[in-house]
Amino acid sequence: MPFITDTAFDSGLSYIDTNGTRVDICYTAEPTNYTEATSTNSCGNKTGLNTGAPEAGATDGRRVIVPAITDGSVSATQTADWWGLTDGTSLFLAAGDLSAPQSVTSGNTFTLDAISITFRDAA
């Protein structure tokens, strides 16, 4: 049975825990770097987030949880399809698709469920 220690997973996830402070919702295409995630493809964001410390994954492995957002700022009237997690300065940490596309209107606020970022156990 393959095995990788949780400490190894946690070392990687701690990087996201330490740096993950900003979530953007994105449109047009999946963001591929910091600039696209926070500006070119961004239609809203929430800063000052505190990503949680590593914990047990929902199924297996280890994960960190980006907290739910209740008051994100929408900056462009678009259909948000993806999210991007960054440090708000220069680091692009993670991205994924929203559970469903969401139309948003500039000047409004958006909400987003908590996001789990998981390293699965070795197969």
Partner: peptide, 11 residues
């Protein structure tokens, strides 16, 4: 689709 004063990074 943005406020007229909005700037962004354009490729």
């Amino acid at each position: 689709n943005r406020p007229t004063s909005a700037m962004s990074w354009t490729e």
